[in-house]
Structure formats: C-alpha cells, structure tokens
Amino acid sequence: MPTMNTMTSAPAEQFDDLDQQLRADVMGMWVFLATEMLLFGSLLTGFVIFRIQHAAVFADAASHLGLKLGSINTAILLTSGLTVALSEQAVSSGRRRSAFSLLLISIVLGVTFLCIKFYEWYIEYTEELMPVLGLPFRFKGEHDHVAELFFNFYYMMTGLHAVHMIAGLGVLMVILMQIARWSEPGRVTRQARIGGLYWHFVDVIWVFIFTLLYLLRS
C-alpha cells in the first residue's frame, strides 16, 4: 500500500511526515488483515458448526488426510515465517545481502509448501476423495454424503489458502526486487514490514486449517 514515486526521505504528499505515513501504512494493513480474519473465519465457523453436528463422520473423514505431509508442510510454513521476520529485520538495519538471501529462502519455502500441497491434492484425487467437478467420490466408511461435506470444506479452505499463498509469494517477490534495486531504503523497509505482516497472517490461517482439518481425527 505504500505510495509510489516518493523520494527517499520525503513522505507521500498527503502526509506530514514519514512517521505518520508508516503509522498509516501499518494500520491499513492491520485493518485489511481484520477483513481477512473474518473472511476465513466465517468459513472456519461453518466448519466448526458441522464438526460438532457430525462429529464421528468428520473425524473419520479427517483420518483420510495425510498427517505426515501436512505436518511437514506446517513446519515449512512456520520456518518461512521466521526467515521473513529475519529478512524484515535485516532490511531495516540496512543489511542488504542477508535481507535478500533470507527473503529468497522464504520464497523457496513457500513454493515448496505449495508443491507439497498440490501433491497432497493429487494423492486425494487418485484415492477418489475429490468430489469436485463431478469427479467420482468413493469414501470407505459410513455416511459418505456427510464425508463429502467434510471434503468440500477441505478443498474450499486449502484452495483459498493456496490462493492467498500465491498472492503472498507475489508480494515477497516484489519486495525481493526492491531489495535488489535498493533505490529507496525507507520505502523498502515499509514494504517489507507490511508484506511481512501479510505473510505471517497467512501462516496463522494455516495453523488453524491444519489443526481443525488434519488433527481432529477422533
């Protein structure tokens, strides 16, 4: 959200000073994250309601998800959170090289997460657990219709999360280019701070998706 075409030291024209601008930018991002929280939150709430209503079937369906891959993916994402935070710190203290490499590592980790996620979906596709676009759905258990509801939620949540990951990767790449160019350190610091907030928030969302969908299997 920072405004383009500003000089290194001068704030954008609507602001009095850089402090005010940073404050506005960070606050804007937090307000945006509040909307994201309600976007994902309403879906998670719907899931929680049905999880309570159809407890046994949902638990059974959850045990068909890959716990190992999901756990590895969560660890990868949490680690990318660390590298993004470290990179932010490096940017603000002017350590350009380490900022660059840390952010590059974050992007690689993010891409790895997505690759594993796609692989998981592929496995579920081969096991005929993908009730999307009229694909066959064969669930080995009782109440296969209710299990289908579980998988509907699963694809909706992980899909929307993946879309947010892709957007987040785009943001990180923009910041990476800014670090490479390093023409306006003040602006890069602001962008890294705001882009980082978004990335961390997408991690938080994943923690809840992972816990509610993968871990609650009994």
Partner: peptide, 23 residues
C-alpha cells in the same frame, strides 16, 4: 475426543506467538 481441546489450545498458542513476535 478428550484431547480436541488440547489441539485447539496448541493452535491458539501458535497463533499468539506469531501475532506477538513475528507480527
């Protein structure tokens, strides 16, 4: 099912850590 609360508690703690330190 008794441990569901524990799973959710751990998730809340993780989120709290990310919010307070990373963010």
């Amino acid at each position: 099912p008794a441990y569901i609360g524990l799973n959710i508690g751990f998730a809340v703690l993780m989120a709290a850590l990310i919010f307070t330190v990373f963010m």
